[in-house]
Every structure is written in C-alpha cells, then in structure tokens.
Design a protein around this nucleic acid. Sequence first.
RNA 1: GGCGACAUAGCCAAGUGGUAAGGCAGAGCUCUGCAAAAGCUCCAUCGUCGGUUCGACUCCGACUGUCGCCUCCA
Length: 497
Amino acid sequence: MSLRLYNSRTRALEDFAPLEGNRVRIYMCGLTPSADPHLGHARSMLFFDVLRRYLEFLGYAVTYVQNVTDIDDKIIRRAADEGVAWYEVVEKYYGSFVASLERLGVRRPDVEPRATEHVPKIVEIIRGLEQKGIAYESDDGVYYSVRAWPKYGQLSGRHIDELLESVRIDASERKRDPLDFALWKKQKPGEPAWESPWGPGRPGWHIECSAMSWEYLGEPFDIHGGGLDLIFPHHENEVAQTEPLLAGKPMANFWVHTGLLFFDGSKMSKSLGNFVPLDEELRRHDPRALRTLFLQIDYRKQANFTVDSISAATKGLQRLGETLAELARRGGVERIDGPGALDALRSPSPAVEGMARAFREALDADMNTAGALAVLFGWLAAARTLEGDQAAQAARALYGALWILGVAPAGDRLAAPRVEATLDAARAAALRSLCERLCGYANSGGVREWVEAILDLRRQARQERNWRRSDELRDALAGAGIVVKDSKEGSTWTVVD
RNA sequence: GGCGACAUAGCCAAGUGGUAAGGCAGAGCUCUGCAAAAGCUCCAUCGUCGGUUCGACUCCGACUGUCGCCUCCA
C-alpha cells in the first residue's frame, strides 16, 4: 500500500517513492504577482498543501519550495500604469495572495524564493547553456536555441515543427529561430535591471524556476508542481534549460499538474478578466467551505466554480464538524491541532481501523480527496454510536483526517456556538435597541451580552410555558440576524450571514 | 488547422470489466410546545450509435456536445 501519483512526465500513474532517503523535495510554481490572485490560484496551492500534508502523514520529511516570479513584463507594465515601483506592485499583490492563502489554511512554504534575488544562479545556468552551444547572445538578450536540444517538446507533447506553424513572430525580438525564448533580457530605457555578463538586464520568464529549484532542492528533485496551463511553455522551457546540464537525468522525477478552474463556464484568467479577486471571494464564503469544495473535485479535472456549489460544501462540512464535536465531547478529547493529530490515524484503534484504511486507500489513489471525504461521511453514522474511549479514538482519528485535508474546525466551534459578533454595525445597533426595549437596558458588553439578556427573558417565558412570548422573542432576534435553536441541553444561537 | 481533456441522478461529484461513493437539494419518519438543528430511511444505470466480451458505465471505434493548450496565465 503506497501512494500512487499521476506523473505528467511519463503520462502514467506511478508508485511514489523519494529519490533520496526519506526526504521529499517539492517545487511548486507560485505566482507572478502582477494582478489580484483568484480562486484558480488558490485551487492549485490548496491541492499541493494537501499533498504536502499527506506526505508528512506518510512519514516523509517534506521540503516545499514555492517561488515568486517578482519581475516580468506585466509587473513592469503594471507599475507604469499605477505610477509605482515594480517592487511595490509585487508587494501589493503577493501580500494579498499570502494573506488569502493563510485564511484558506494553506501552510506557508518552507522557502519562497524570488527571481530577482537569484540572479547569480540564473547567470550560472545561462553560462552553462552557452558553453553547451544551446544559448546564444543577440542584440537584445540571450536566447535559448530550441533546436539545439533534441528533447524539446517532450514534456508537453509538442513537436517543434507543429509549434512553428502557429507561432507568433515578434519582429522586435532578435532571435535566430521564432521558437527560441529569452533567457536574459537586456535592459530597455526605464526598466529595472541587474548586472550580468551580458550587461544590465533581467531574467526571462522560465529561467528563475530552473535556478531556484536547483538552488534549494538540488537536481534532480522529487516533485515539480503547477497548474496545467504551465506545462507549455513554462515547464517545457524549464526542463529544456535544466536537463542539458544534468547528464541525462530528468529535472524532476514527478510532474504533477492541477486542473484549471472555470467560472461560469470559462477559464478564470487574468487576461480574460472574468474572475473575482481571491480576497473578495474569501469575504463572501467560509474559507474551509471553499477548501471542501475543491477537495470534492478530482485535482486534475477542470472544475467549474459556481456560487451554488459552495453552499453544499458548507453544509456538509458543518455536519462533519458537529459529529466531531460530539465525539470529542463524549470521549473527553480536547482539540488536537497539527501533526499531533495524526497518530490516531496512523495506528488506528479497532473502532476506526476501517475508516483509517479506506481514507488512506483513497488518498493513495492519486490523491482522491473526494473519495477520502466520502469515506469520512460514510463513517459518520457508525461513529455516532461510539462512546467513551472508542469515541475518543474516533475523535482523534477524525482530527487527524481533517488535518490532512486542512478542514479541521476552528477551536471555538467545538467549545461553544460562535459568539463573537460578526454582525455589521447596523444590525448590531438594531440588536442593542431591541435589548433596551425588551430588558429596559442594554449594557456595554456588546452583541453577545445583548443576545444572552434577551434569551434569558425567553428562557423565563419557556419555563412558564408562555410559548407565544417565546416565539415572539425568537422572531425578534431573527429579525436582528440572530437564529436561535433549541435543544434538550438549552438554546444556542448563531449569527446569520 | 494541430494536440488534448471531459460528458455519471435537480445541482456538485467519486468510481470499477461483473450489475453505480459522497455532499447539497427533495420526500417520509424520529425528536420537539412549535420552529430550527440533529438523527434514521428513500431517491440514478452512467451523452448517442456500433464493436469486443459469458458480462461494459468501465475496453475499442464512430458521432454529438462542452472545454482547454498551441500567446501571458495556477
């Protein structure tokens, strides 16, 4: 029983094993921060976050590198448009990206290297290619000679002659072959530049990933990831730049590509402009629900995002959380965060053995997260019958599973209903005056106190079996955005969105 | 034009050569003063047409449809 992953390099499902000992080295193509990131970016990062967690669960020591391509044509253009420096553009959009990923529970990479900080390594690689006769200098830059590398096109399944038919020839570029691409771009007036043997300039797109993966992971490394749209030309060119210097070894053992995300039927992309910025999307929806939604879709498939699909994920996740809370309560288990939750899943007790095995089998099968989630849901009914120590084991194992998927409930959900007010100012004010009217006063405590004060009145009414009064109070609260639910243990309430 | 992916119930969506996971919605029931929540139960024969096979949703072919890459893109 082991992890099998689809390898784009070989176009086959393969058993995964590290190249070296227990260490798994992953390089993920991150962002070129020239515009607001969107949900599609999040999808890729989310998947690799789960892959990373699962590899850790399996006992591997994972090194995860995700680059920032912090200089390119679009960043320069954007800076000009906004009248700011190129690095301010980078800080703005990358900062927003990082903040959004944090909300999504995506762990920070071990290293987030930037292209502009790795010019020496970039130069070194270009030098090496020059020596092999694969790179050449021209008036405006240093180019990669596509025809000098026989394997060009292998990764993405292209043929040079076919590519040639549809290539767009940019007359401004001085290259020998239309398919050649820039390794180094010589400085033009007003552009930022770094020193190099070819004079001031900047790295071309692609070379930064060759340089930084090599720098931090060594060559070859285990897994190279990215969105499917990067396979050509980006990944193809990375391979072409790196492998001539590796004496026949592949740059990365596994290439893992995530499917693209669509919004109302067409691809989300910066150039099409048909997307909602990620940070805005995260204000509208529960980040964990977004995670769940993506986990319910095969990572390699195209996925169409619609607003409706998110509510289904939200509800399902809630049920999972409710059962977990119940198991934790019965078993007397505190919230377990992080890798500490994994032991119960690694060596499961009899009560959770079946679930643990099925859960792993699903993830072993090319990270079938949808299947893994289905295992959890399917197990819920059986789990609810557990008591005492068995409930404790079940709770721990479920914590572990949810940690791998990154959708473990927030701690406060388990302890008590969410009471911290997320009410907007208008509704909070309405609530305050409601409290004043009903109770004759409103202390300065805030939403929580006001709701509790009103609920006290209602409890009284219920004790007196004054159902009419009770319902009036419930309706009044509902009018202010507070939903009350009664159970045998008492009333709970939540703020409605 | 070249290359490729996908097509499963109202929606989202796993999966396998031997008679279809799961989530949401919907229906019934339990609980409840009522409501909500929660729980239990029910709810598809897998785009079309051929072929291979004892047997196909799963393999092959054709067709139709949707989408992607070939240009910046997770």
